[in-house]
C-alpha cells in the first residue's frame, strides 16, 4: 500500500426537497390552522377552537409520548397504555375531591397546591403501576408482537375492572378548582383558562423531554437505543434498565395526561383510557412510532382537526382524524418522522 492521497472531507449535497423534507411535518400545523381559519366563518370561534385544539393536542401528546418511546426502544407495543390514563385520572381526581376545601377556596395558591398534589400522587401511582405492568405483563413476551397485543389487552381489561371494584361503576363528575374555572376574553374570543394552562403544561413537558433526550447522557442512550439497541448494549449500557425507566416515566406521564384529561372533561369513567387510546394510536402512527417530535406534531394536528371538524360537522370528527391518518400514511408510510432503524 503506497502513501494515500489526502482524504478530502465533504458532506453529501442535499437537494431542496431533502432540506425541506424534515420541516414539512412542522409546517403542517400552521397549514391546518390557516385551513381552519378559512373554513370557520367567525374569527372568534376560530380562535377559541384553535386554543382548545392545541390544548387537546398537548394532553394527547402527554399521554402518548411514553407509548411511542417504549415501542421505539424495545419494539414493545402496549395496548394497555390507556389503563395508565384511567388510573391516573381516578387517583388524581380522588385526591382533588379529598382536598375539596382547598379546591373550592378562592385562593390561587391553595388551588394550585391541590392540583399539584393530585398530579404528583397520580404520577407516582401510575409510575409504580407501570413498573409492575412491565414486570408482570410485558417482560415475559418481549419480541413477540402477537402475544404483546393480546396480553396487554388482557392487562387493560383487568385494570379497568379493578377501577370499577375500587371506585364503583358510575362515572364521577367533578368541578375544576376555582382558579381554573372560567375564561378570559381575548380579541372577542372566549378562551377557557384551563385550556391555556393545558397548553402551557404541554409545552413545558415537551421542552423538558427534548432537553433530557438531547442534552443528557441518559437521553442519548434512549435515542441511540431507539435506533440500534444491540449496539447500545455492545457499548456497555444496560438497555433493559433504561427501558424499564422509560416505561415507568411514560406511565407516569400517561397518568398526568389522565388527570389533565379528567379535569378537561369534568367527568371520569373507567373506560376513558380506552377511548383516549384511539386518538393516542392515531397520533403515534402518524408521528412515526418511536419519535417524540413526531408524536408532538401528530398530537397537535389531531387535536386541531378534532376541534375544527367537530365545530363544522360534529358527526365526522373522529372520521376526519382517520382521514388525516390515511392521508399522512399515503404520503409517508412510516409516519411523518420515521425512526431510522438499524436493522
Amino acid at each position: 500500500m503506497s502513501a494515500a492521497p489526502q482524504h478530502a472531507p465533504k458532506m453529501a449535497q442535499l437537494s431542496l426537497s431533502d432540506r425541506l423534507g424534515p420541516w414539512m411535518p412542522v409546517l403542517l400545523i400552521p397549514i391546518l390552522i390557516v385551513l381552519g381559519f378559512l373554513a370557520i366563518p367567525s374569527t372568534s370561534s376560530w380562535l377559541t377552537l384553535t386554543v382548545s385544539g392545541l390544548a387537546m393536542g398537548m394532553m394527547i401528546f402527554i399521554m402518548a409520548s411514553g407509548l411511542t418511546l417504549v415501542f421505539g426502544l424495545m419494539d414493545v407495543i402496549n395496548f394497555g397504555h390507556g389503563a395508565f390514563v384511567s388510573v391516573g385520572a381516578f387517583v388524581g381526581i380522588s385526591i382533588l375531591l379529598m382536598l375539596g376545601h382547598m379546591t373550592e377556596a378562592p385562593s390561587l395558591v391553595l388551588n394550585l397546591l391541590a392540583v399539584l398534589a393530585a398530579v404528583l400522587v397520580a404520577m407516582l401511582a401510575t409510575g409504580a403501576m407501570g413498573w409492575a405492568f412491565e414486570r408482570v405483563i410485558v417482560k415475559p413476551v418481549y419480541g413477540h408482537h402477537l402475544k404483546q397485543i393480546l396480553v396487554t389487552v388482557g392487562g387493560l381489561i383487568v385494570v379497568e375492572q379493578l377501577i370499577i371494584v375500587f371506585w364503583g361503576p358510575e362515572e364521577i363528575y367533578l368541578m375544576r378548582p376555582e382558579a381554573l374555572q372560567g375564561a378570559i376574553t381575548f380579541a372577542g374570543a372566549a378562551l377557557e383558562k384551563y385550556r391555556l394552562v393545558a397548553v402551557g403544561v404541554g409545552l413545558v413537558v415537551f421542552a423538558a423531554m427534548r432537553f433530557v433526550l438531547r442534552r443528557t447522557k441518559i437521553g442519548l442512550i434512549v435515542r441511540a437505543g431507539v435506533e440500534n439497541g444491540e449496539m447500545v448494549q455492545a457499548l456497555g449500557y444496560r438497555l433493559r434498565l433504561v427501558f424499564v425507566g422509560v416505561f415507568i416515566a411514560g406511565s407516569a406521564l400517561a397518568g398526568l395526561g389522565g388527570v389533565m384529561w379528567g379535569l378537561y372533561q369534568e367527568v371520569i369513567t373507567a373506560h376513558m383510557g380506552n377511548q383516549a387510546m384511539i386518538l393516542i394510536f392515531i397520533v403515534v402512527i402518524i408521528g412515526g412510532l418511536g419519535s417524540v417530535e413526531g408524536c408532538f406534531i401528530g398530537a397537535l394536528l389531531v387535536g386541531l382537526m378534532q376541534n375544527y371538524v367537530a365545530f363544522l360537522e360534529p358527526k365526522v370528527a373522529l372520521i376526519s382524524n382517520i382521514g388525516l391518518m390515511v392521508a399522512i400514511l399515503m404520503w409517508r408510510p412510516m409516519g411523518m418522522i420515521p425512526v431510522v432503524k438499524a436493522k
Binding site: 408482537h145 397485543i149 387510546m277 403515534v284 402512527i285 412510532l289 382524524n321 382517520i322
Partner: peptide, 9 residues
Amino acid sequence: IFFAMITLA
C-alpha cells in the same frame, strides 16, 4: 404492526 392499531381506530 400498524394493522392492529389502524383497525382499532
